[in-house]
Each structure stands twice: as C-alpha cells, then as structure tokens.
Design a protein around this nucleic acid. Structure first.
Ligand SMILES: [Zn+2]
Ligand SMILES: [Zn+2]
Ligand SMILES: [Zn+2]
Ligand SMILES: [Zn+2]
Lengths: 167, 167
DNA sequence: AGCCGGATTGTTACATGATAACCTCTCCCT
DNA sequence: AGGGAGAGGTTATCATGTAACAATCCGGCT
C-alpha cells in the first residue's frame, strides 16, 4: 500500500524547498485526515516550523518560536505537540541531538535512518529498510525482538565534504 | 588484527557473570596499557560499576556510587570518567536511555548495536558489522560519509518474551 | 438550548541530564 | 627549583524533559 522513497536523495544540496515543504505538509495533512487525527493549530504550526529547514530542532527552540507567535510559553506546550507528531509519524526524534525533525515521508511505511552532518547540521532522512533488516537479523541471532529502533549516523554531507577537501 | 565477537550471544539469560565481568575488565586493562592510557582509580571504579550489571546506568546513578565510596560528589567527576571511558572505547553511550554501558568487547574493532529490553532493562551489545555495512551503503547512496553511528533497538529480550507469552 | 465527558492547551513547579569555570595536586621534564 | 600537562575536586549554572492541576474547547446527547 504505502511504499518508501520515490527519489533516492533529498535534503542535501539545493532544491525547490518551498515545494518540498508544501508537499510534505500536504501529505501530512492528508494522512491526519485519513487517520482521524486532529492537526490543531499548535501541532500544525510546530510541523511547519520543523519543515522550514532540514535540521533538527530542540524542544525549547520550537517553544521560543511558539511563544513569539502567541502560543503558550511553557515547555509542555512544545513537548506535547512534538510528542503528538512523533507518536503519529509526522516527525521523528533524533536522539543524538536531543532534537526533533519533521518526517519527510508521512504516511509511508518507513524505517528511517538519519544522516546528520556535523559541519552544517543538516539532517536527512534516508531509506533504511535494508539497514533495518540487518538489524532485525542481528537481534534475532540473539533471540531479541526489535520493536522500535533508532539508527543515526554522524558524518559529512556531500557539500561539506567537498568544501573540506577544497580547503 | 582485532576481530569481533567470539560468541554469538551474551548478556541475556544466566551466565557466569563473575567471569564475564572479570574477563572484560582484564581485557580493558590490557587495552589501556597497550594504548598508554591511565586507568586511574575513579575511571577503573566507574568501569567496574558499569560492568556489575548488563544494564545502562545514568551518570548520576554512577555518581551516587562514587560519592558513597569516597570519590567526589559533583557531576563532573562522573561525567569525566564516563567520557574518558567512552572516548577510549571502554564504554558506550546509550542515547535512547541517556545512559552509559560498559563495552563488552574492549580492544576489538566493533560497530556496536544495542539491544535494549523494555521489560527488564538489560542492554546487550550485539555484533553490528552487517548493520553498519548496510548503513554505510544507505549513506553512500546519498553521498554522505558516516563517521560515527548510533544503532539502538528497543524491544523484548528472549527471557521477557517467554514470560510475556506465558502470561 | 443545555449538559456531559474527553481531548486539548495553558499554567506552576520540579526532576533529570550535562557543562562551564576555576583551583589544587601530582607527576614528569628541564 | 621551575614549569607545564593531566587529573580530579569544587561551585554554579544551563539544558532537557515531566508531573500535576486548571481552564477551555468540542462533539454528541437529551
Ligand atoms: Zn527541502
Ligand atoms: Zn553538511
Ligand atoms: Zn555478564
Ligand atoms: Zn528483558
């Protein structure tokens, strides 16, 4: 039913980000309707904020934005919206950064792998089905059943790698 | 030179843990000597504490133990020792739990994968070379170069799974 | 209309995790 | 002796995440 990743490479490098954002948001909205979930003003706004950049944002960073826009000023306001988004697959938690990133494939079945550039801080969500399979196999070898997984890589994105070589 | 994982499955289930602990500690000490690193009293004690159980411990949990044994009472005491152990491969940070676990394969080249039981909290360090390879491949497809990776799975260990089925 | 109950959003207060900055001591080298 | 690096101790502070409670919104039902 839901497939993964139409295009192999997003996030890094120049692209029509306005379209990228609008498209992802639209798919998220459709998915919310399909699931009967309420994408309320705060929740929707938080998702928009996360979508602005291909980066992960801390809860307090999001909260500052919300507060400046007339929403509540207290941590639970941000955490609740973020938790809602994460629980329902509209965003992901990037544990390495204690931060959150919008899901770029809402509604699709996907095992996300996060590629975090240590130089420019871009966070890309790559297709991780093969990685996940390998993980399941490794776990199975120990008799362990995987329910949820976090797969995160820190390194250099293509742009920053090129820039580093040029120096 | 250094290979990975002699035995396929450790950590879960009953085993000669005294031997398991002593052996791992001995290998860590040998490795410290080989690398010219100083495994000072605090550092060594922290490693011993982490080795006591196949669990991950928070920095403050470790700190309480240190304080009770006459070491410093302040966070940096624990964090410095833990950072030393992590930086030099004697321990790992489990980001999902904001906690630390002793490395069960000190001195060996390894790409650890953590299997965290959500029921009994045991943390096992499984061999992750294949997972890491899949991750590198996925990253390479996006032009990304992986430098460090965190691969953590939450689920049920064999024991807890059996117990759950029995209920 | 009027009422109810659950979901949502706001609040205060607090728990937990992590660092910055500074001081002293010891060991080793000149 | 003098001096610097490394280690470990301190105080103080910052960052991240929750518990618990109050007000409000909203849909469904009399
Ligand atoms: Zn974009
Ligand atoms: Zn980059
Ligand atoms: Zn053991
Ligand atoms: Zn278990």
């Amino acid at each position: 039913m839901t497939r993964e990743a139409e295009q192999p490479q997003p996030a890094f490098g120049a692209h029509d980000h306005a379209h990228c954002t609008a498209d992802t948001l639209a798919r998220a909205e459709a998915e919310a309707v399909r699931l009967g979930l309420r994408l309320t003003p705060v929740r929707r706004r938080v998702l928009e904020i996360l979508l602005e950049q291909h980066r992960a944002m801390g809860a307090y960073e999001v909260l500052d934005r919300l507060a400046a826009e007339g929403f509540g000023h207290q941590p639970p306001v941000a955490y609740r919206a973020l938790d809602f988004l994460v629980d329902n697959g509209f965003a992901h938690r990037v544990r390495r950064l204690n931060a959150f990133a919008a899901c770029m494939h809402p509604g699709e079945t996907h095992a996300p792998v996060f590629l975090i550039c240590r130089s420019c801080n871009v966070v890309a969500e790559a297709a991780g089905q093969p990685v996940r399979s390998a993980l399941d196999a490794a776990a199975a070898a120990a008799g362990f059943t995987v329910e949820r997984a976090n797969i995160e890589a820190l390194g250099l994105c293509p742009e920053c790698k090129a820039r580093e070589l040029a120096s």
